[in-house]
Write a protein that binds this DNA or RNA. Sequence first.
RNA 1: GGGCCGUUAGCUCAGCUGGUAGAGCAGCUGACUCUUAAUCAGCGGGCCGUAGGUUCGACUCCUACACGGCCCA
Length: 495
Amino acid sequence: MDELNDQRLQRLEKLETLKSHGVSPYGLRFDVTHTIVEIHTLHNTKKKEELDTNHISCTIAGRIVALRRFGKAAFATLQDGGDRLQVYLKQDLIGVELYGISKEFDLGDWIGVEGRLFRTKTDELTVEVQRYTFLAKGLRPLPEKWHGLTDIETRYRQRYVDLIANPDIHQVFRSRSQIITHIRTFLNERGFLEVETPMMQPIPGGAAARPFMTHHNTLDIDLYLRIAPELYLKRLIVGGLRRVFEINRNFRNEGISTIHNPEFTMLEFYQAYADYHDLMQLTEKLFSSLANTVCGTTNIDYQGQTINLASPWRRLPYLDAIVEINQVDPNILTNLDIAIEVAHSLKVHVEPEKGLISVLTQLFEATVEPTLIQPTFITDFPIEISPLARRKDTNPALTDRFELFVGGRELANGFSELNDPIDQRERFEGQVAQRAAGDDEAHYLDEDFIRALEYGMPPTAGEGIGIDRLVMLLTNQPSIRDVILFPQLRPEKSS
RNA sequence: GGGCCGUUAGCUCAGCUGGUAGAGCAGCUGACUCUUAAUCAGCGGGCCGUAGGUUCGACUCCUACACGGCCCA
């Protein structure tokens, strides 16, 4: 428990004062006629004279976030859903008794008011209060009115205070909801079926990542929180669902950073009879329609950079990108020694003992990714790092796969799915060997998934899009914690 | 895991080469019936992140730890 500071004690006393006057500090249901934003939308354009001749009554509710008293009159600012409206209390209008009780108002209290709309001398739209009622007494002081709450730790730990003190952030989370709604509509219109697949999986599959583990007592089995829904969604394609998608949480037991939260939201969708080229086009359409809906333009600003999401986007093969962007000897792609040498000259930390592909991957992450500011599809990933993707017909060492980068970050990953069960088994066995060699991010062998493929999966393309990073991009937020309401932190107290 | 930075009143922040802890907002008392960072007069409020150490004396210097941020691996 928090210490009882003087301001809390004073508010607890006010609570008793209210009760002694027969006023309940915590109200029951309250019928509002308008939200505050509705008042603004309906009446913002109405002039002073119009409001004086046509009485407009309303009943609204909100939290007191500013209070200015003048003896026998007072102005209060109510905040509701991030929007604000001024109300005016006058002793002459509401009577000595009710006005007297309003002296117990504190910043942070919820009240409901009934009254008439008018404009003040300074032309501010205001409710002239005829009646008011306490809805909830606030016992803790609010952050300062001018600077708001800036302490990042408190903002994340006590998001409710952040939402009170910094109403601007409401828009970020409204945009987040709008984005997800738009995606659902976009996919529904194209015949995709929304499904839900297990969050608790006996074999965590579909990605290279460390899982969280839990235990089911009755079955007495260990289960993993999913790192991806991929293998389950493809089982549904086998079953004939044809077009499916899922928007839900994935869990990865890894580091936390401005672009990583242990639980994060992923969209995955699968389309039978399609290939990765189809998905690239679909992704361009989805992103530009999202940008138009959320930002009103496809030319968006992200942290000082202008990003143009209008299609078409650049497509660049993975290996070419490493050579082209670094302007280096193409022989790095086939010769480990040259690759190591180049990595050293570029001051990129690599682990040569893990082989050529690992060195190239590290080179790619360090030197290519940060340069991909404008939307770019990197294509044709090596087979070693794509164990679920279809081989290229033209080059069996590469896959029909792409990753989308925007603002220097990976936002999406898609490919033509591997639907050959024999090849899939070999790929899994390669992963199992890597796991045995100490790679704890390598994929597990999922026998039931192979069995499903043996029933036959039509040619299919599938893609995953990181929703949190997408929201960061479209709302211009620098950290994933700014688009997740309750980001993961260490507990406040050790006890 | 490593480096750097931060942690002082409810909030936002000062606090010098070590010498009794400061402001603004918020709060309390009083005045004020159109204010909007209201104004005016007065008053309270501190485990200076935690634990050690150095010192006559530590918010200040040192060490460890906790929590957070940024960067790197």
